[in-house]
Amino acid sequence: MRIMIIGGGKVGYYLAKTLAAEHHSIMVVESDPVRCQRIVRELNSKYIEFTCGDGTVMHILEEAGILRAETLIAVTGRDQNNLAACQLAKSCFGVKMTIARVNNPKNIRVFEKLGVDSVVSSTDRIAGIINQELDWSEVNLLFKARTGGVRIREALVSAGSPLRGRRLAELGLPQGLIIVSVLRGSEAIIPNGETTLEPGDYVVAMGGAEQLAEVCDAFTRE
């Protein structure tokens, strides 16, 4: 695929490097001359072209070859620039697919409403991961101090989970993991093998990090 990347900071740099390794044809646009020189020097690949200039200005995009691009990915550190680049690509140059990084997770909705095809927020992703464990962080601290590997985590049983509607005894839970409690509405059930899980239940599980990740993933899968 022919992909234009706006922004040659850390995200843009590794994105170009990764995609070029898969033999996509990459065009990188970066406005800062020092960064430009660095990426030209370090990412020396026949699959990558570079343009030094502001990727939110029409003639720079043209010069960089936007008319050949099928996808544009805007990953500068400024949301307003990423939006402008995607909108220009779409409305003025007919680029089919636009992807933007947002720094403020609240801008996900704004970008989607203003026509960006795909919006990525690393802040939102990381916050999501942390929220899953947040309420248990002090409990986990206690475990960590005393026992090392054992952790506790909460997971919401999704409507599409392959484990919903089944008795705990049937689930084939891995060794070294137990379900401590099932929170249903305002009730905390101390489960046994006959307890069945319903979508909307919160399952509190305890075990090694790997087993926990595997089981919580099965509970929350859509």
Binding site: T56, R78, Q80, N81, L83, V110, K113, L114
Partner: peptide
């Protein structure tokens, strides 16, 4: 002083 900020603020105001 930033045109892209003006552009984005204007679009949020008008479209959203």
């Amino acid at each position: 002083p930033d045109d892209n900020t003006n552009l984005m603020a204007a679009q949020i105001a008008r479209q959203l």
